[in-house]
Nucleic acid binder design. Structure first.
Length: 950
RNA sequence: GCGCUUGUGGCGAAAUGGUAGACGCGCCAGACUUAGGAUCUGGUGUCUCGCGACGUAGGGGUUCGAGUCCCCUCAAGCGCACCA
């Protein structure tokens, strides 16, 4: 019987769906395993062969775990809100809801053809109100929480109010925008608006007036991870810094926990490192400096407190509020001009060329350790957003300060013994400190660092600064709060209305607040949100429902927030929702959450390292603090699949003609390479007839062929894209070879984690393998099984158990590309052994089941089973069959293998040594030699190290 | 500049410190065929007629033994980057 994959695959797909084979429940005594793929944006282009790579890899793992006796949760859904979906809708002039629904249907159709074991009854869509209800709900919880630095945990905002009532800000250590200081009495004396403003300073979801990335082209603000090198990640449009009032999430409060959590995760080092860089922890000291002849003080941040005696100037960021304060009358004009100059430079310009620029403010600070005067400058190399926006400059030991000092001719005082700073600064944190203070300089309390190592000096200075009240030890992070609002239509609405101008939460039981229909959903360049176009978009407090905006004059009706949430909102807790997707009472029920706990294996692209993978960890930690999620980290193990690039093909047109010349002869003509659709090329050979039909202008094309009559195309690796005609649709492969071959081939292509070009050329090998394996089971040209009840031979069992061992180990290690060759070899061996033993072949079917589910299911049933192969037990490994009767060993003299001989498998190294020495071949080498050393390594080699005997 | 990762045939790639290049593609030869871009069998790192020698980016080291471990150099990719 032939391997008829079309019939087989269609039949089992239907039956699996009808029988609910992949539906799972948390009511199980089996151990759980949670496999998750990063859910896709349903883009308009549909899936190409690169998309399923990770899904196939995780599907194999999920199926394997199921065979191993686990209750496996493997859900799928769609990240349907956000910029890409909306951009596509705008480009095609349709409503995003319509295009999204269409795109999802297309995705589903494509996914279904590949034979995944997703439990579709748990599907989520971020744009579904029943789903985003919980996104809104979590947002409200964040609004009503603050972060206690001492217990490193989110707490209800009521607790903060209570604290204010009792003690004001005294003894409070909470994450906030700016440090506030007031007493209980002052708090009580504040009016509603003032208290609202104060609380906003502490909420985890808050309205903040901050510098944001404004992208006029997209008509919205963007988060830091959505901007790269001054342009938007999506579209590559310019982004400018603008001060705007936006919703923000206090992600920065969780920096330390986000950092600590990394150590407990099985992620790659590179992605953990990327997150560490992005969080950017830096331990240092905040020090207070006094303005000369004034009581005014200001604070700087430094990681090199030990270099205090080398400070020769101070620098303020141009945006710093201190600039105006410290500028003297004489310098005002120069400073104002400089600030104007900096404002005129775009973020991009400032990032790309680091010009040395700056201006003196006219004022001096006083070095708190020596009393020396230090001039205060303004320069763009100091960033307003990091630390305090002011630094103490130590040109001898910081290259930026050095460049500045050289440019403006400021003094440079070296502090490390033996450091040569005549050409460049000495930035390394090593060496012995000297010149601190210089001879004869009196210091505060006789403080000196001379003779200490840099590390000791930093510690000593920190302690001294704290004791003397000159400042405090401080940890700074690079990670900023996430800007959480977008001036776009296609996103979750904020469950917020404005009562007397103050953000107020819509009652929890009224959620979800559904996205309204609008006349025009396009973004505007001025930042007017499209939701402003909604007729019904006011909140009636009394009726507790959305009403017509025209009623706003009525004193119980208030405008609803016009901004929407960003793309990452919906993807920040979807892994929890999958556990209990139909629960209308909670994001996730306690029972379901405590059963599934967290994701054991998460598969997706590494491009989410600083976006989704930070936000969702933050979001989950917040829910953990709330007691909603029972695990602090959402994703235990993370595997990043590589990108599949396109492999383009070219034809060579002879210039000014309609003649195409094959690659081998293209050098003889003046030709233009032209991209040709890879779907009409096979193994780099062009289907000439298909080419003629491809485009009308090629219908009359003429060809200069290779001598063997073929037209050979050139090729190159490029991004997979429509314009290069190198997009390969999985549907086409499935149609031609079947899903099982596609699955095998995608895995065979190389390590899952690695990026690689798609090259259909090798797929025949996988297809041939399946046909070959099929042939083990069926009599050729007949509808009868060739399987018999013979007892397996020792060779059969050896082949089988080697395979069990290899495949088991490979799947655990996610190394599928090496287990497919193992299958090929094993099938080849069984064929040669003429093995038709049921006992062996049945196990082979199960071993293949994770890779080729349809193929295995068909054979499993043909072998007489009436339940699905998914519930078969994974074959047990018996090491006994792996033992070799004997081993062939090389015997080497002085490092060269001279001959090989056979030893019994159970021989000890000593026995092997004796046997090797006694072998006749050895005599040749041992003659006249003195044996210096003999080493026998079991199963490997016997070494004789010899030297001429005296 | 700092951090991470990777360098192996014509190509994709394998190798618990132990015969480098498994397996697949491609290529070559043969078989069966009216035919082959089907199927099957065999061959295929480089140099050499052969014996054999040389081969894992380059250089050093550890080891009886290194693609693998350590140090240096070079190249490529990714991340961060005027972060004090």
């Amino acid at each position: 019987m032939e391997y008829n994959f079309r019939d087989i695959e269609a039949r089992w797909r239907k039956q699996w769906a009808d029988e609910g084979t992949y539906r799972v429940s948390e009511c199980s005594s089996k151990p759980k395993f949670y496999v998750l793929n990063m859910f896709p944006y349903p883009s308009g282009a549909g899936l190409h062969v690169g998309h399923p790579l990770g899904y196939i890899a995780s599907d194999i793992y999920a199926r394997y775990k199921r065979l191993k006796g686990f209750n496996v949760l493997d859900p799928m859904g769609y990240d349907a809100y956000g910029l890409p979906a909306e951009q596509y809708a705008i480009q095609t002039g349709q409503h995003p809801e319509k295009t999204t629904t269409q795109n999802i249907a297309r995705y589903r159709e494509q996914l279904d053809k590949i034979g995944f074991c997703f439990d579709w009854s748990r599907e989520v869509r971020t744009c579904d109100p029943a789903y985003y209800k919980w996104t809104q709900w979590a947002f409200q919880k964040m609004f009503n929480s603050f972060f206690c630095n001492r217990c490193q945990q989110a707490q209800p905002i009521e607790q903060l109010v209570e604290h204010f009532c009792e003690k004001g800000t005294e003894g409070l250590d909470a994450a906030c925008g700016e440090e506030l200081c007031f007493t209980a009495e002052e708090w009580k004396a504040m009016d509603e608006q003032q208290q609202y403003d104060v609380l906003m300073n502490y909420r985890i979801a808050y309205l903040g007036e901050t510098m944001v990335n404004w992208c006029a082209e997209l008509g919205t603000v963007l988060a830091n991870d959505e901007v790269v090198e001054g342009v938007s990640v999506r579209g590559g449009y310019p982004v400018e810094q603008k001060k705007m009032r936006q919703w923000c999430l206090r992600v920065s409060a969780y920096c330390q926990r986000l950092l600590d959590g990394l150590d407990t995760l099985q992620w790659t080092d590179s992605i953990k490192e990327t997150q560490r860089n992005w969080i950017g922890r830096s331990e240092g000291t905040e020090m207070k400096f006094r303005l000369k002849d004034s009581d005014e003080t200001f604070t700087i941040f430094t990681t090199r407190a030990d270099t205090i005696f080398g400070v020769t100037f101070m620098v303020l960021a141009p945006e710093s509020e201190l600039v105006k304060k410290f500028t003297t009358k004489e310098q005002r004009e120069a400073v104002e001009e400089y600030v104007r100059y900096v404002k005129g430079r775009t973020e991009r310009e400032r990032m790309i060329d680091h010009k040395v620029t700056g201006v003196f403010t006219g004022s001096y600070a006083v070095n708190p350790f020596t009393g020396a005067d230090v001039p205060i400058w303004v320069s763009e190399y100091v960033l307003a957003g990091y630390g305090t926006g002011a630094i103490m400059a130590v040109p001898a030991h910081d290259s930026r300060d050095y460049a500045f000092a050289r440019h403006f001719n400021l003094p440079i005082i070296p502090l490390i013994e033996g450091a040569d700073v005549s050409e460049q600064s000495f930035d390394a944190k090593e060496g012995i400190v000297g010149n601190s203070p210089a001879e004869g300089v009196e210091t505060l309390a006789g403080f000196s660092l001379n003779g200490l190592t840099v590390k000791e000096a930093i510690a000593r200075t920190k302690a001294f600064v704290t004791e003397q009240g000159l400042g405090r030890v401080k940890v700074n992070y690079r990670l900023r709060d996430a800007i959480f609002s977008r001036q776009r239509y296609w996103g979750e609405p904020f469950p917020v209305y404005y009562k007397n101008g103050r953000a107020t939460m819509i009652p929890e039981e009224c959620l979800p607040l559904e996205l309204p229909q609008v006349a025009d959903f396009k973004p505007t360049a001025t930042g007017e949100p499209p939701l402003g176009n909604a007729q019904l978009w006011a909140w009636d407090e009394e009726k507790r429902e959305v009403v017509d905006k025209a009623l706003i004059d009525n004193c119980r009706v208030f405008p609803i927030e016009l901004y929407t949430m960003p793309g990452f909102a919906g993807s920040s807790a979807y892994f929890l929702r999958y556990m209990d997707p139909h629960n209308s009472e909670a994001l996730v029920g306690k029972t379901a959450n405590e059963y599934w706990k967290n994701v054991d294996l998460y598969v997706g692209g590494s491009e989410h390292a600083t976006g989704h993978l930070i936000y969702s960890r933050f979001w989950n930690k917040f829910l953990y603090d709330l007691g909603v999620a029972c695990m602090e980290e959402p994703f235990q193990k993370l595997v990043n699949q590589g990108m599949i690039q396109g492999r383009s093909n070219f034809v060579y047109r002879v210039k000014e003609s309609n003649t195409f010349v094959t690659l081998g002869k293209s050098g003889d003509y003046d030709v233009t390479p032209i991209h040709v659709d890879v779907n009409i090329v096979k193994n780099d050979v062009l289907d000439v007839e298909a080419f003629k039909q491809w485009r009308p202008e090629y219908a009359t094309a003429e060809f200069i062929l290779e001598d063997d009559g073929r037209y050979v195309c050139g090729w190159a690796v490029e991004k997979m894209s429509k314009s290069m005609y190198n997009v390969v649709n999985p549907d086409v492969i499935v149609e031609k070879y079947g899903a099982d071959t596609l699955r095998l081939y995608e895995m065979f292509l190389g390590p899952v984690e690695q990026s690689k070009p798609w090259d259909t050329n090798g797929i025949d090998g996988c297809f041939r393998f399946l046909k070959k394996a099929w042939g083990l089971f069926w009599v050729k040209d007949a509808d009868t099984l060739s399987v018999n009840d013979d007892e397996p031979t020792r060779d059969n069992l050896k082949t089988l158990h080697r395979l069990i061992k290899k495949v088991g180990e490979d799947i655990e290690a996610f190394s599928y590309n090496t287990s497919i060759p193992a299958f090929m070899v094993a099938v080849g061996e069984l064929q040669q052994q003429k093995c038709h033993s049921r006992k062996v072949l049945e196990q082979l079917v199960v071993l293949m089941a994770p890779f080729t589910p349809h193929f295995s299911e068909e054979l499993w049933r043909a072998l007489g089973h009436d339940t699905t192969v998914c519930d078969a037990p994974w074959p047990e490994l018996c090491e006994e069959y792996l033992k070799e009767d004997s081993v062939m060993l090389g015997v080497q003299f002085n490092g060269k293998v001279r001959f090989s001989m056979e030893f019994p498998a159970e021989a000890t190294p000593e026995q092997m040594r004796e046997m090797a020495e006694a072998a006749p071949e050895a005599a040749k080498y041992l003659e006249g030699m003195q044996v210096v050393k003999v080493v026998a390594v079991p199963k490997r080699i016997v070494n004789f190290v010899v030297k001429p005997a005296k």
